[in-house]
Nucleic acid binder design. Structure first.
Lengths: 258, 258
DNA sequence: CCATCTTTGTGCACGCGTTCACAAAGACAT
DNA sequence: ATGTCTTTGTGAACGCGTGCACAAAGATGG
């Protein structure tokens, strides 16, 4: 019914559940830390604690990758690091482009997490001609006109959108048309993409609103019926009572001038 | 078993499922856009399309809030905006603090989405004494020493952590001790918090790795068995074959110098 | 070689979330 | 007033993810 797919149909990739895939990076991070400390093996219990998950869940997750553990001992750290890296596709190089070099785009460009783990910033792209050529994080900013050429020349298949909300869909369309099949979207908009293209979104505003919901619920329970659910919470007035009638102010705020 | 809770136990808040809460901000955004265009009513079908979800899901979501629709007509936009705002707790003011004013922290401070929708940046906090007093986004940066005082004076219950990974847990502990009960974590670490404290994490590195996994899967299917799953994807070589032995390089990369 | 002890791998049950499909409700025209 | 048409609200079925609990596997010590 909708014009295009927005969510990942995710046909259960190769038997590996989506939820498991989402946790693999977490395990990998914990394992890498262990590896740096030259720890040879870990039990599921230890690793699960480090990753902040249930140990049974961790074992089941690993079972999807194969049987890489030794009963009575645990998992070989180095071997597991390699297996997970391979499974996630981190043993190869992934060139990415960042579109929209405002505050956020610049922060992402400077983000150290890109360089490690197989990701490489192939180009920074912005619509503002004044930005063109100016180096950000040591990489010169290119103009949007060159987008298609950059994608094709570098074989980019992953794009990061950090533009204002209004520019996100057009940029997305161009990225997809040029061959990008995975998009990480920081703009507060629902992106519509054709089948076969994956979109993941990071939305600060949504996260905050979810927190506000729970925060309000806590405050409400506290005030209404003092049920022993929140252990150590000072019941100071969390905020002025609901009077701020903020009305229909501008939503879908511009993330930055890109 | 674990030292502390990391995931939301989320005892099914007040009958509203967690998954529904996570979608309410999405609906709210779409509704606000309609409101600005002075659209009086929407059908579940239209609104669902705008929010990028299934219409049945949307109707079920709204049913948890009550019966705010009119059969044969749809939903009153203004009324629904109000109801969702109220449910999410956006009719009151939420002061937030941002800890770690590096590239990302500064980007967040400049983010327009804060100001709208009831969130107000109460303070920017950084550990670097050289930053103290320097204005970012029009707000002077305060030193970490003042953290507790700031939290208490402003009645802050929501904190945003944008520090390097190593500083995140200590900062988190101090925030919680000072009274913060909701945390949005941008640092690539698992935070351990006591019961009653909500943590949501935003992790660029994890998102990219998930995309890489799917990207690799697509490339693999393409090369191995040319199944018609990816419609318009030029099968150009996505990258050099797996040779980049990136070894045990530094994980948990510093997000920014905070 | 055998006993014991640790830890994995997984069968099973349960609960949540999603989706279908349809009856009930109301608008609207005649 | 009555019939038709649109759209909501929800009962029910299904599938996925989670966590328990335990048997199998292997290490380790005597």
């Amino acid at each position: 019914m909708a014009t295009g797919r927005t969510h990942r149909p995710a046909t259960r990739s190769r038997g590996i559940p989506e939820a498991t895939v989402a946790r693999l990076p977490l395990y990998l991070r914990a394992l890498t830390a262990l590896s740096e400390r030259s720890v040879p093996t870990v039990s599921s219990e230890e690793l699960a604690a480090a990753a902040g998950v249930n140990s049974a869940k961790l074992r089941k997750d690993f079972s999807y990758l194969g049987s890489y553990g030794t009963r009575g001992v645990g998992y070989d750290v180095e071997y597991l690091v390699y297996q997970i890296s391979r499974e996630l596709g981190l043993t190869q190089d992934w060139p990415v482009v960042i579109v929209g070099i405002g505050n956020l785009g610049a922060a992402l460009a400077n983000y150290g997490g890109f360089a490690s783990r197989g990701f490489r910033v192939a180009a920074l792209i912005d619509a503002d001609p004044a930005m063109a050529g100016k180096p950000v994080a040591g990489i010169p900013v290119r103009h949007t006109d060159e987008l298609e050429k950059i994608i094709e020349d570098n074989g980019v298949s992953i794009g990061v959108i950090a533009t204002p909300a209004g520019a996100a869909q057009p940029v997305c369309d161009r990225l997809v048309a040029a061959g990008v099949t995975s998009i990480l979207n920081f703009a507060p908009t629902v992106l519509t993409v054709p089948d076969g293209v994956d979109v993941r979104k990071v939305d600060l505003s949504i996260e905050l609103q979810i927190l506000a919901f729970h925060e309000q619920r806590k405050a409400g329970e506290e005030t209404a019926a003092g049920d022993g659910a929140v252990p150590a919470a000072t019941p100071r007035g969390t905020a002025a009572d609901g009077s701020a009638d903020q009305g229909p102010d501008g939503d879908v705020p511009a993330v930055m001038p890109a």
